[in-house]
Design a protein around this nucleic acid. Structure first.
Lengths: 313, 313
DNA sequence: TTCGTGGATGGAACCGGTTCCATGGGACCC
DNA sequence: GGGTCCCATGGAACCGGTTCCATCCACGAA
């Protein structure tokens, strides 16, 4: 492992100049910079992260805190954040916050430069309090004063409901998400509003955890309403529904339309089925982008970004 | 943020002694150590990770490299590894290796102390070569000379096949996993062996990517064989099968038995359906445990651990 | 009493970068 | 031609720990 001193020696300059040349800061003669860069390349120089962190007083690590890894809604977010972090020269660590969220934050806070917080549930004050120690960006939820980025699924659910009503569906079911979910509150309101405007009957079921099993379980209740269209909170719930409907001989979408996401439609060859298309990677990427700006002081906390969510009718 | 110097000053000792007391190494008089610990507690001292890394020449970070986060087989492994890493005082970063696996390794290698490698596919030499720079533990795959831990699903698949044959199934289908998968080779061999011994007819389909959509797609081919039992490589494939069978009016398990995992059985209320129960968290925990021992020099590379996988008939 | 021994402690070097500050030299202007 | 200013560069301090080595002290043995 070669060090900065080695590079400096080979290039015939001091450590100080070598450091400046490699970081692109400060003023270095182009010719000198070229020599340093060449030397670094030849030696395969990789800066020692620990030394850099110590000198800069920054860890270069960002933590993304998610409730679980078992929900495929979160994983693309992580992937997107990871990609963007790498571009910006940060490392990402994934922390799963179980029941002991505050404890987990406290332990991490001194180790990282900032947080990406994915906390769909839990009280506002808890989220704010635990992530106050370091700059943080809230993902897919909004709290006043906190920087956040959300997929505007509420609007998408509204559009989708309107579309269903326009297709002649007079009885629609919305299967709600987990208890206390911020997004569920938004979506419920949007769906109710859209149904009311369109004059369609709406039944709201739930709360339901965002799992496959919950979708299976809620199926009888859905059928009981006599509805011709279902809008489930999450893809996992929708899959559970589809599976349970299949075993009951209910044909989709002939007997009942179940809204879902494009990948499911494609996989199953469903037709005449509406879908919303949340780009989780984009969500993660954007959130990380905001956090990097916060850390660089290019942005003040509190900015709220909404990403449009396409609806495919 | 208080530093070691602060702690030393408060305790009335030198930095050297304070360090020794806090790390439990070297010899420190019990009375002195007590004073240092008390001072540290009072000041809320948290050692600066970067400084410690720099001095020790160890980063304290371990990377787990997975092919994707979208497969729920990998995520519990990460969770288990994460838990064990925390116990041992390591941080875990999750790296997703896309097409550029060697590049990803090279960039990471200088930043971390070791690797957990989850590489179900890809050639042996590639895996060995890319992870040779740092101590590594291979997860759910075996390569001579590398430390590894695998869930012995091959044995479980064999047992399961035997059980199916004993239940009277004369025609069985095994839906194979992704092309080049090490586990798939093991499982195929085990299933073939068990079927032959039991005198049951076996059709091997595939290769199939471990996705939901692949399960849907393979369904017609499965039905065509006239088999009464299917053993899919992965849970995701099995779910696709179940879904597609439902839409075709094939009742499970009356018309066709589909082996799966316990959580699916429970969710769907399936009966008379065999399941194998891979404990992903345990896999991750064990792998991390092995890596920690490697890093501490308590173990030589090359140890291979197999975890038994229960079969529920 | 003195020497040897070993445990507790402190001083200081060191890990590998970053950055403040001082210095030197060249170009430009008067 | 001389003075000024600015830019490129180097020296050295510093980030906050760890650890080698020397020192000091107390105790037991000769």
């Amino acid at each position: 492992m070669s060090t900065l001193s080695d590079v400096a020696a080979v290039a015939g300059v001091s450590k100080a100049t070598a450091s400046r040349a490699l970081n692109g800061r400060g003023l270095v003669a182009p010719e000198t910079a070229g020599r340093v860069l060449a030397a670094a390349a030849r030696l395969g120089f990789v800066p020692n992260r620990a030394a850099r962190e110590l000198a800069r007083g920054r860890s270069g690590i960002i933590a993304i805190v998610v409730p679980t890894l078992d929900n495929t809604f979160f994983t693309p977010i992580i992937a997107g954040a990871q990609a963007r972090a790498e571009e910006a020269g940060f490392q990402l660590t994934v922390a799963v916050h179980g029941p002991d969220a505050p404890g987990a934050f406290a332990r991490l806070a001194s180790q990282v430069d900032g947080f990406l917080v994915v906390a769909p549930r839990g009280s506002d004050t808890l989220v704010v309090g635990t992530s106050a120690a370091k700059p943080a960006v809230l993902v897919d939820r909004e709290i006043d004063g906190m920087t956040s980025v959300v997929a505007d699924t509420a609007a998408a659910f509204g559009t989708l409901t309107t579309w269903l009503a326009a297709q002649g569906h007079e009885r629609i079911v919305y299967v709600g998400g987990p208890e206390g979910s911020w997004q569920d509150r938004q979506r419920t309101a949007a769906v109710q509003d859209a149904a009311r405007r369109a004059g369609a009957g709406l039944t709201v079921l739930g709360p339901c955890p965002a799992t496959f099993a919950a979708g299976v379980e809620v199926t009888p209740a859905v059928l009981e309403t006599g509805a011709t269209a279902v809008v489930p909170y999450a893809t996992s719930i929708g899959l559970g529904l589809l599976l349970a409907l299949g075993t009951r001989g209910v044909e989709v979408p002939r007997d009942l339309v179940v809204s879902t996401e494009p990948t499911v439609i494609e996989a199953l060859g469903l037709e005449h089925t509406p879908a919303i298309d949340v780009d989780g990677e984009e969500l993660g990427r954007t959130a990380m982008g905001l956090l990097v700006r916060l850390l660089d002081g290019q942005d003040e906390p509190g900015r709220q970004v909404r990403l449009a969510v396409p609806v495919r009718g």
